[in-house]
Simulated scan of single mutants.
Amino acid sequence: MSPADLQQPVLLSLLGGGFAAAFLHAALPTHWLPFVLVGRAQGWRTSRTLGTVVLAGLAHIGSTAVIGSLIVAAGLALDQWVEGLLPHLSAVLLFLFGAFYLSRAMLKRTATASGPALDAPEPRVADRTALLGLIALMALSPGEVLLPIYLSSATEGLGVLAALTAVFALGTVLGMVVFTALAGAGASILRLERWARYEGAVLGLALIGLGLLVALHQH
Rank of each mutant, 00 (worst) to 15 (best):
P3F: 10
L15C: 09
G16A: 01
G18R: 04
F19E: 02
H25S: 06
L28P: 08
T30Q: 01
P34S: 11
F35Y: 15
F35H: 13
G39T: 00
G39F: 06
A41P: 05
G43I: 08
G43L: 12
T46V: 14
R48E: 13
T49V: 13
L50E: 04
L50K: 03
G51R: 04
G57E: 02
G57A: 06
H60K: 01
I61E: 05
G62R: 03
S63K: 11
I67C: 07
L70C: 12
I71G: 08
L76D: 15
A77G: 15
L78Q: 06
Q80Y: 13
Q80A: 15
W81D: 15
V82E: 00
E83I: 12
L93H: 01
L94I: 06
F95P: 08
M106R: 10
M106F: 07
L107A: 13
L107H: 04
R109M: 00
A111H: 01
A113M: 14
G115S: 12
L118Y: 13
P121H: 08
P123F: 03
V125Q: 09
V125P: 03
R128D: 14
T129Y: 09
L132G: 09
L134S: 07
A139R: 03
L140Q: 07
L140F: 13
L140E: 09
P142M: 07
G143V: 00
E144T: 13
Y150M: 11
T155I: 12
T155C: 13
G159H: 02
L161M: 09
L161H: 05
L161V: 01
A163F: 09
L170A: 15
L174P: 00
T180Q: 07
T180S: 01
G184V: 01
G186V: 06
G186P: 03
S188A: 15
S188W: 13
S188N: 14
R194S: 13
R197M: 00
R197G: 10
L203D: 01
L207V: 01
L207D: 00
G209E: 11
L216D: 07
H217V: 07
H217T: 00
